[in-house]
């Protein structure tokens, strides 16, 4: 058992144009570490969807990634509005995004289901008015 590898990224909620920078940086790190393209793609898509959500729904947050021998764990934490009905939010096509977000190419209500699809485990801890923490695991 080797020491877990950890990466930390701040996700700026003010700037849509820079959204996804953390995901790009993580992807580069995973490439350097030599993970398979399949693992890298799963982690990248899940992380990017989550990062975009933090920017468009929660005014930013932090991303922590931990890599151990058998898994990559992504923890996305924000102090945004929280999710009132998680079951509803997990449904394909459910979105509270308005037209200004759609004009940017997002807000189809596909992000959370996609994060679930590309990871082996996903847990959402959320409280309205307090924030949301999403933990995703990709097994190696």
């Amino acid at each position: 058992m080797t020491e877990p590898l950890r990466f930390h990224y701040d996700v700026d909620g003010e700037n849509f144009s820079s959204a996804g920078e953390a995901s790009v940086a993580l992807k580069q790190n995973l490439r350097k570490l030599g993970y398979s393209p399949e693992v890298i793609r799963k982690v990248s898509i899940a992380m990017y969807e989550g990062e975009i959500n933090m920017v468009i729904h929660a005014n930013g947050g932090v991303a922590d990634v931990e890599i151990t021998d058998d898994r990559i764990t992504i923890i996305l934490a924000d102090k945004g509005p929280g999710i009132a009905d998680v079951e509803l939010a997990m449904q394909e096509g459910f979105s509270t995004a308005r037209d200004n977000i759609r004009a940017l190419g997002f807000g189809a209500g596909m992000g959370l289901p996609n994060m679930k699809k590309y990871t082996d485990d996903m847990k959402i801890d959320t409280e309205v008015g307090v924030g949301t923490t999403i933990t995703m695991v990709v097994l190696l």
Binding site: F16, S17, P37, S44
Partner: peptide, 15 residues
Amino acid sequence: GLLNTQVIRTAAMMD
């Protein structure tokens, strides 16, 4: 036809 940086990041994430 979308013109913003997320087009490129999305493409990059999807290889």
